[in-house]
């Protein structure tokens, strides 16, 4: 399986296309420009990471890709069709907080989207337990969220995002609430899952190391209004390893992103 998937780059096909996107928030009559002139294409099966200063509009952009918020200008195509409303067949979402339903056990949380679609109970549980297996929690299905650690909750949340087998997975700072060690292992886990499922992933983070470690491509944004100011191809080989973080290439990539984010002016178009 791994062999076949490592050739995913060969079949070039745009999975997400964002065209001329802009967004203006309006609250109490005051308009504020959050996103300006966003254009990007994510090829199927690629792992794209978005970084940028706080408040630059990363979450907003992701919400729009998920169909949870309507942009004021421009178009978003996922799998060739516009994203006007949430569509679990095309896009799964994982948030910073795991947002598990506290009254449901882990497996019922994972099965929740299937329940919404009216699948039978046994099929739901089969698929959900397969997903829990995939994220390494096959043993914990009966536990309730209050009995899970932060990392485990986030794994359940990822399993839930994947359970309908959407081609795209959007992740908004999914590991931000975790401690550094858990975060590292979760990164490894995510790459393993990704390599086993051939998803297209868009991942928002504030951690530069995490960005370089995970990404095929890093998009750097600037704030006020939010624009994409740089695209960085990460040409480190896969599978990625912890040791790569000590290499010169890794350091240079990290540096380049940091300088982009730090620069006061967004005068550095990609």
């Amino acid at each position: 399986m791994k062999q076949a998937l490592s050739e995913r780059a060969v079949t070039e096909r745009p999975m997400i296309e964002v065209i001329g996107l802009g967004h203006t928030y309006e609250s109490r009559g005051v308009a504020s420009r959050a996103l300006e002139d966003i254009a990007l294409t994510v090829q199927a099966g690629r792992f794209t990471v978005i970084v940028g200063p706080s408040g630059c509009g990363k979450s907003s952009l992701l919400m729009m890709m998920a169909g949870l918020r309507r942009q004021t200008e421009g178009t978003i195509l996922v799998d060739g069709r516009p994203m006007l409303d949430p569509d679990p067949d095309r896009v799964g979402v994982v948030f910073q907080d795991a947002n598990l339903f506290p009254w449901l056990s882990a497996i019922d949380n994972v099965a929740f989207p299937l329940m919404l679609r009216g699948l039978g109970r046994s099929e739901r549980l089969d698929r959900a337990s397969a997903m829990l297996e995939l994220v390494g929690l096959g043993h914990a299905g009966a536990r309730y969220p209050s009995e899970l650690s932060g990392g485990m909750k986030q794994r359940v949340s990822i399993a839930r995002g994947l359970v309908q087998d959407p081609p795209v997975l959007l992740m908004d700072e999914p590991f931000a609430a975790l401690d550094e060690q858990t975060r590292m292992t979760m990164g490894e886990e995510l790459l393993r899952i990704w390599s086993q499922t051939s998803k297209t992933v868009v991942f928002v983070t504030h951690s530069l190391s995490e960005a370089v470690y995970l990404a095929d491509e890093v998009l750097v944004m600037s704030a006020h209004p939010g624009r994409i100011i740089d695209r960085i191809e990460v040409e480190l080989p896969r599978p990625r390893t912890y040791e790569m973080m000590a290499t010169a290439t890794f350091g240079q990539l990290r540096d380049r992103i940091w300088r982009q984010i730090r620069s006061p002016q967004p005068g550095n178009p990609a």
Binding site: L68, P88, G92, F95, F101, F112, P113, L116
Partner: peptide
Amino acid sequence: QLLVTARSMGATLSQRLRHVVLPA
């Protein structure tokens, strides 16, 4: 956030009321 999450899974309004608001 639970409501946003349910929405991201395509839950309709009545599903959100029944499966999120009610149990909560």
